[in-house]
């Protein structure tokens, strides 16, 4: 039995890595691109989509009961009765 909150911590660590990589990418774009609308527009689209995904997931995560446990063995036997 694995506490569900462990997966939340892993998710947050990965999200932190994501934010760091996204920041580096945007800095590179803003530093080296030619002055123009497309550089700003593409960065805006990138940030908007990422923000929407994070927002939707965050809203869902507030409804989750984090005291639950996850048992992979149980799930497998439930879903594949032969086991």
């Amino acid at each position: 039995m694995i506490p569900l909150s462990i997966f939340l911590i892993i998710w947050l660590v990965l999200l932190l890595a994501y934010v760091a990589l996204a920041f580096i990418s945007i800095v590179q774009m803003m530093r080296f691109a030619l002055v123009g609308k497309m550089a700003y527009f593409s960065t805006f689209i990138f940030l908007s989509v990422a923000a929407i995904i994070i927002l939707i997931v965050s809203i869902y995560l507030t409804t989750v009961d984090w005291t639950l446990n996850l048992s992979f063995g149980e799930i497998i036997t439930q879903q594949i009765p032969i086991l």
Partner: peptide
């Protein structure tokens, strides 16, 4: 719910 959450994450 636990499995759904895992899939969402």
């Amino acid at each position: 719910q636990a499995l759904t959450t895992l899939l969402v994450l």
